[in-house]
């Protein structure tokens, strides 16, 4: 078993007005090579910051702590960061908004050229050859090479972005909300495309999302993130059908599903502020199952092989 990503107490934060905000507050996570992991959570829970840390696009003023290892390369070790030879070669990023992520002045062919030139110093001819090999894999024909981004639909732009990430031959792909700007009925197509490509090219795929139902159809593992920490992680079926953290259960109950018309149960309250340090469970204020022990930081509970939860009540699970 080769480990593609290893995080040990990884923290990532920013200084805003002389105050440190830890967006990722100590994450321990291991991802095997060739698997798909979905990281699910609400806005502001640190998902995108975690994605930036993996792909090496953290801003220079970001603070880090702990350790992040991608295959054999230690890229974050405390405050030190070294992404030389990693960014674009071992990891590639599929950004959130295809409309604003492509350069409106460049044709699709030129996008391929600049991406491949910056990583491999390749010339136009070689980049065109790679583009023509990759585009059919994402269900686009080579006629799009001459087109500018505005001439493509949202779904086509998203496919071009996926093709650009594949062209680098990076082993780890990180897709940040790949479906949030796409029509609901097209989301599944894009997600299935990602899943198919992951299997075909044997990539390690990390999908960041808050769209629990659509995205999780392709993943092997699901990690539920809340206020900068991973609350539950485990195989997809186990997490969805046997959730061992109340937040996971409540997220499932709050998601509208076609054909099910019972009243939705919103999660009361709001996530805690990122600027504060908490001794108690981070979900305490919103949890209907809280008790005395929840006022101390929960230990990670092992439910079964590769299914973990950060809740004192994970084993008894009164919400099930």
């Amino acid at each position: 078993m080769v480990l593609a990503i290893v995080m040990e107490n990884l923290k990532v934060g920013y200084i805003i007005e002389d105050e440190v905000f830890w967006a990722v507050k100590g994450v321990d996570l291991v991802v095997e090579e060739g698997t798909t992991l979905c990281i699910i959570g609400e806005s502001g829970c640190g998902k995108s910051t975690l994605a930036s840390a993996i792909t090496g696009i953290l801003p220079p003023y970001a603070l880090t702590d702990g350790k992040l290892k991608l295959f054999d390369h230690v890229v974050i070790n405390g405050q030190l960061r070294n992404y030389n030879g990693i960014r674009g070669k071992i990891t590639a990023y599929i950004p959130q908004n295809p409309g604003t992520s492509l350069n409106p002045f460049l044709t699709v062919e030129e996008h391929f050229y600049y991406v491949l030139r910056s990583n491999f110093k390749s010339d136009r001819e070689f980049s065109k050859k790679i583009a023509m090999e990759i585009l059919p894999k994402v269900n686009l024909d080579s006629s799009v090479l001459e087109k500018y981004p505005h001439e493509l639909s949202g779904g086509m732009q998203q496919r071009v972005i996926i093709a650009l990430a594949l062209a680098t031959n990076a082993q780890i792909l990180v897709a940040d909300e790949p479906t949030s700007f796409i029509d609901a009925h097209l989301r599944l197509q894009i997600i299935e495309l990602l899943g198919r490509l992951q299997r075909e090219f044997k990539k390690t795929l990390i999908v960041i999302t808050h769209d629990l139902l659509t995205t999780s159809t392709i993943c092997d593992y699901i990690a539920i993130m809340y206020a900068g920490k991973i609350m539950e992680v485990g195989p997809r079926e186990k997490v969805l059908r046997n959730p061992r953290h109340p937040y996971t259960k409540m997220l499932l109950e709050t998601t509208p599903i076609l054909g099910v018309k019972k009243r939705l149960k919103p999660i009361p309250g709001e996530p805690p502020s990122l600027g504060k340090e908490y001794q108690a469970c981070l979900f305490l204020d919103r949890c209907p199952y809280k008790s005395k022990e929840c006022y101390s930081d929960p230990q990670i509970q092992v439910i079964e092989n590769s299914h973990f939860s950060k809740c004192w009540k994970a084993l008894e699970a009164p919400w099930l």
């Binding site: 009925h185 989301r187 599944l188 197509q189 139902l213 659509t214 999780s216 159809t217 997809r236 079926e237 969805l240 059908r241 499932l252 109950e253 599903i257 076609l258 054909g259 099910v260 019972k262």
Partner: peptide
């Protein structure tokens, strides 16, 4: 697309 999705996840609510 919704039906596929629901079947794949084998959701029962």
């Amino acid at each position: 697309s919704y039906k596929d999705n629901k079947n794949k996840l084998k959701l029962e609510f």
